[in-house]
Amino acid sequence: MTTPSTEPGRENGTRRSLRRAVPYLLLTLSVLPIVIGYAWVIIATFSYRTKGLLPIDAEGNIGGFTLQNWTFVSDAEIWRVALNTFGIAIGMVIGVGFVSSLAGYALSRMNFAGRKGFLGLTLVLHAFRPEMLLIAIFHVLLFIGGIPLIGKFFGFNTVGGVALVMVSLELPLGVWLMKGFFDNIPWDMERSALIDGASRFRVWWEIILPQIKPGLAALAIFNFITGWNAFLIPFTFTLGSKVSNLPVYLNRFSEDTSMVSWNQVAAVGLFSLLPVMIFFIFTQEMLLEIYSGGAKGGA
């Protein structure tokens, strides 16, 4: 043992680093269950069976690594389902982004009859649970399906129809968010551009939109994830795997065999998570930027 009197610095140092370690220890402990859960998923997808976190074979011995859970990736069906999922997600990114950035601008900058009422109504609309609207939406989709040409792409049991419904349900929030971003852009900048000779549209496109890029990006990421994970709407308005998306496919998959292979379900689940994770890794820097100050003000 060293005495505190001869080596005070060292003694203090250890105590300090110990104290610093405590919060990390507590945090690590509290997230452990979640980490174990993820670890199980990853291990399970490559195992025949699992006992706890350990992969086991048919006889119950440790071992039994296998790739059989992943054989579904060679199936053309999964890729069509993935493509559908991607279609819905991208449809939401584009649809919500486009409409909200136009509507948000109008609501933020222009004065027209019914503006206040519209704003209030949008908020109320967002409070409606989609479950309440399913029957009504079904009728709308049937109606759209009856329209020649358009009906083929946006009617009942089409990817376009699902995307359309998802976009509509997400628009109230998107419009509100975008209005908020536009509200933060100083009026003077817009006036200046008008005096410089820009049309209203160019002001929107060249001056205002570039400044809310981080906001637009956040909305896009948010919508991509929502669209990618959409379950209720695709589940309700699609039949069969031709137009279903990954969450619905996964759900059917875990239901329709009597003996559910959970390891295979985990593999499909992990597969469907990959794009979102990749998307997230590439965009997280942008997301962080949004929370650290949003639009960078020049003057």
Binding site: P186, M189, R191, A198, Q211, G297, G298
Partner: peptide, 16 residues
């Protein structure tokens, strides 16, 4: 845009 005026704002209103 058709008045041909130039304006300098208090906030400068530069395009950042």
């Amino acid at each position: 845009k058709d008045r041909n005026v130039g304006m300098v704002f208090q906030s400068y209103a530069l395009y950042p």
